[in-house]
């Protein structure tokens, strides 16, 4: 990914020198031409097109913002309920992610989303221990995390 981005910048610079137009607009035109060139030449790269990854990052951000707002509405409901009848629980969440940054990102996202805080990551980084403020069904909570965040993170890190 980094290589393709660098290549795109260099192509944009070459375009600026070719047209001797050293402005932001010239750079932008060169950048778009570079994107087109990279798309045409995509079968020479071993990794996938970097635009796909940028798109995956944007999608992850949008999912995250949505979940953050839902989380806060849920906490608001729990806090303002007349009697405290929630059922907190610690549950284990087995993760398929392997790299450190992926696990860090997943824990941060889980911590900022509806009713869950990551309390502990096991030593081999295979299991996250999550505290849920109101647990209806553990399997449901696990499935929700797996379907939304883990899938989106895998989409970003796929080479």
């Amino acid at each position: 990914m980094a290589f393709q981005v660098m290549l795109n910048f260099i192509l944009a610079l070459v375009w600026m020198f070719l047209s001797s137009n050293f402005t932001a607009a010239g750079f932008l035109v060169g950048f778009i031409l570079g994107v087109i060139l990279i798309i045409i030449m995509r079968r020479f790269f071993t990794t996938r097109l970097y635009l796909a990854r940028v798109w995956a990052i944007i999608k992850l951000t949008l999912i995250f913002l949505k979940e953050l707002i839902l989380a806060n509405i849920q906490v608001l409901k729990v806090v303002l309920r007349p009697e405290l009848d929630m059922q907190p629980a610690f549950f284990a969440y087995p993760t398929v992610l392997t790299r450190d940054w992926e696990i860090t990102l997943l824990s941060s996202l889980i911590t900022l989303t509806p009713g869950t805080v990551v309390v502990h990551v096991s030593d081999d980084a295979k299991v996250l221990y999550v505290h849920a403020i109101d647990i209806g069904d553990v399997d449901e909570a696990i499935a929700a995390i797996r379907d939304s965040f883990e899938k989106a993170i895998l989409e970003v890190s796929k080479s």
């Binding site: 059922q87 907190p88 610690f90 284990a92 309390v119 096991s122």
Partner: peptide, 11 residues
């Protein structure tokens, strides 16, 4: 009121 504790054995 905590209904379930998977973390205690691990710690």
């Amino acid at each position: 009121g905590t209904v379930r504790d998977d973390l205690a054995p691990e710690i």
